[in-house]
Structure formats: C-alpha cells, structure tokens
C-alpha cells in the first residue's frame, strides 16, 4: 500500500465515527499498536521537543528490503519506533508511524500531512506549543533527510 493509500485508509477508518468520543477512543486504541521504541533508545536525546507530553522517537533503516525512489534508484526504507507518556499523543504518533513506516526517505520528505485535518484531529495541528504534532512530523522528516544524505554518500 502506498503512503497516500495508507492515508486514505485512515481517513475512511475515522469517517466511521460521528462523535468525538468514538474518534478519540479509536485514536487511543491505535496508540496501543504503536511499534514501541526499544528501552535503549528511550532516552532524553530522542525526545521530540515541543510536546507537552513526552514523546520519544527513533528511526533506523530497515535492513530487510529496499524501495524504489522517484528517480528509479534503490533506496533504503525507514522504520520508526516511538512511545509517549500520554495516550492521545501516543495515538497520534501511531498514526504517523503507520503512514511513514517502511517508506523511502524521499517518500517521507515529500509527503503531505493534510490527512490529519481530514480525520478531525485538526486541533492537534495548530501552532500551539502545547501539542507537538508538527514537531513530530518535522522530526520524522529530519530523520528522512539525514538517511537520504547518508544513503547517497554510501552509493
């Protein structure tokens, strides 16, 4: 499934819920499926700045497979793991990880995150210091940029 398809899948999934309570319950459930960060990576250096709750995010290259970049080159896939001490935040990270996991750096860098708005979680996108959604997206894209640079150097 492509990145855009995964986003569409999430939009359809959330469209099933008409009220805020069901929507947030689903988000909290999604958080329970988040690929958890390994204890050795759950350190202050991996904290995402700008979140009122604590969010740890780690990224590594998936060694199993490689994808095809837009230019036709073989590119490595990125695998994210994360955790948060708040359940809603954890659900939001889980959404992002579901969309961005096992993608090439180029796919992640170029991805739009409008789907967040479309699933009724727009409040979390506001430029409010209390929520770190945009900080999480930035951090994931930064990882992608970094891996993109290293993979080019290697090739």
């Amino acid at each position: 499934m492509s990145l855009a398809q995964t986003q569409q899948e999430l939009i359809s999934e959330f469209a099933l819920f008409s009220d805020w309570q069901d929507r947030y319950e689903h988000l909290i459930e999604l958080g329970k499926d988040l690929p958890l960060i390994a204890p050795e990576h759950k350190v202050d250096d991996n904290l995402v700045r700008g979140c009122q709750s604590r969010v740890w995010l780690h990224a590594e290259l998936s060694n199993a497979s490689t994808g095809l970049s837009v230019t036709g080159h073989k590119e490595p896939l990125i695998r994210f793991t994360a955790d948060s001490d708040a359940m809603i935040t954890k659900g939001i990270v889980a959404l992002l990880v579901r969309v961005f996991n096992d993608r090439t750096p180029q796919e992640i860098i170029g991805a739009s995150t409008d789907f967040i708005d479309q699933i009724g979680l727009r409040a979390h996108l506001s430029p409010n210091r209390a929520n770190g959604l945009s900080a999480m997206i930035d951090q994931m894209k930064r990882y992608a940029v970094a891996f993109s640079a290293t993979s080019r150097q290697g090739s």
Partner: peptide
Amino acid sequence: VHHYDLGTLLDQQGIAVRTG
C-alpha cells in the same frame, strides 16, 4: 491519566482548562 490527554478530552466537551 496524563494531563494532556485529559485537557484534550475536556476541550472536546467545550471545557477550557489549562494543562502542563
């Protein structure tokens, strides 16, 4: 219960509190 979660859910109910 994390204060951020609670504040978010209260906001959904139209209730403005501060968390943090």
